[in-house]
């Protein structure tokens, strides 16, 4: 009897996994067709690329800040490492393999710098860590501009970077990042990270080495930020150090905070919403930042948990939500 129930629940899991896969494939094919028939033109596609990159950045920062509770203001620094490494490699080796190597090398370099930055700074708490990571990102920026200028062309930046990011790349990298990061979070390692956010002393007392898991989250986050950076340089074929300043780190933070610290689906939703907003405000870049600033304040004042809180969008969540709406409507009628 019990076995039967287990088997059927196993079946259900199977069906839901298959359903998810199917909808992803469908999503991919539909957009591929739209692009092939030029319904999604170059302009719309560039928006799509920005959304994908922002999703990767936000999800990876959420791992560090939302799930592990380590407030980082230097995420753009890791992104810049991925961008520069990938650009330098693809400029030398103009081929898809060059791009693949650049992508991986960029991510790995970002992760290595993540270890170097994380080991000393992650001992710091809250706001001190925020300032230290901000400082690290500024130092990385200055290195790219003034010290490594033989390779990075200094403040003038690199241009003419070969463009490889097409819809399949964009899709695989974005969806892949989201899946991998959620796999991480729903594992014992992920739970260790979350326990550190909840209460570091209690976590330590339960046998969780907080430094190890903080660094793990930080390095994983840095790795994916590196991927996002590589995608950026490969699609927009121009980079300079100032693209990856404090401003960019804040942009990413806004997405994470709006979506909900500790919610992957929240980050995805917020990345889409904010990119659409900034698409409409393209002519007024200052206004966009004013709105971002106001948004941060308003979220913290009125809905500090963001759009999703720490929940995830799932079928059962949707059902509950629509059920509640239905009830409300029913009550009104």
């Amino acid at each position: 009897m019990g076995k039967n129930i287990q088997a059927s629940s196993g079946n259900r899991k199977w069906i839901s996994t298959a359903g998810k896969l199917l909808s992803l494939v469908l999503f991919f094919v539909v957009f591929q067709l739209l692009i092939s028939f030029n319904v999604v033109n170059d302009y719309l596609f560039s928006t799509l690329v920005k959304i994908g990159i922002n999703i990767i950045l936000a999800v990876s920062l959420n791992l560090i800040t939302g799930f592990t509770g380590q407030f980082s203001l230097g995420h753009a620094g890791f992104m810049s490492i991925g961008a520069y490494v990938c650009a330098i490699i693809t400029l030398r080796y103009y081929s898809v393999w060059g791009f693949v190597c650049g992508l991986l090398a960029g991510a790995v370099c970002a992760a290595i710098v993540g270890i170097l930055v994380g080991l000393p700074t992650l001992r710091l708490k809250g706001d001190y860590l925020a300032i230290a990571t901000l400082g690290m990102a500024e130092i990385i920026k200055i290195l790219f501009r003034n010290v490594l200028d033989k390779w990075t062309n200094g403040a003038a930046g690199l241009s003419g970077i070969p463009q490889f990011v097409s819809w399949p790349w964009l899709f695989v990298l974005t969806v892949g990042t989201v899946i991998l990061v959620s796999n991480f979070i729903n594992s014992s390692h992920g739970r260790s990270c979350i326990s550190i956010r909840e209460d570091e002393i209690a976590a330590e007392s339960m046998g969780i080495g907080s430094t190890k898991y903080k660094v793990m989250a930080f390095v994983t986050g840095a790795f994916f930020a590196g991927i996002a950076g590589a995608m950026y340089s490969s699609y927009f074929f121009y980079i300079d150090p100032d693209l990856f300043g404090f401003q960019k780190s804040i942009d990413i933070l806004v997405i994470v905070v709006l979506g909900g610290m500790g919610s992957i689906s929240g980050s995805v939703i917020a990345a889409v919403v904010l990119e659409l907003i900034s698409m409409f405000l393209q002519a007024y870049p200052e206004l966009k930042m004013v709105i971002y600033g106001a948004l941060l304040v308003l979220i913290m004042l009125f809905r500090p948990q963001g759009i999703m809180g720490s929940r995830e969008l799932s079928l059962s969540f949707l059902k509950k939500w629509t059920g509640r709406l239905g009830q409300k409507n029913g009550g009104a009628a």
Partner: peptide
């Protein structure tokens, strides 16, 4: 985070 928001708001 609020302080960062205020800062952006005033700057821009």
């Amino acid at each position: 985070i609020t302080a960062i928001g205020v800062s952006l708001f005033i700057e821009y």
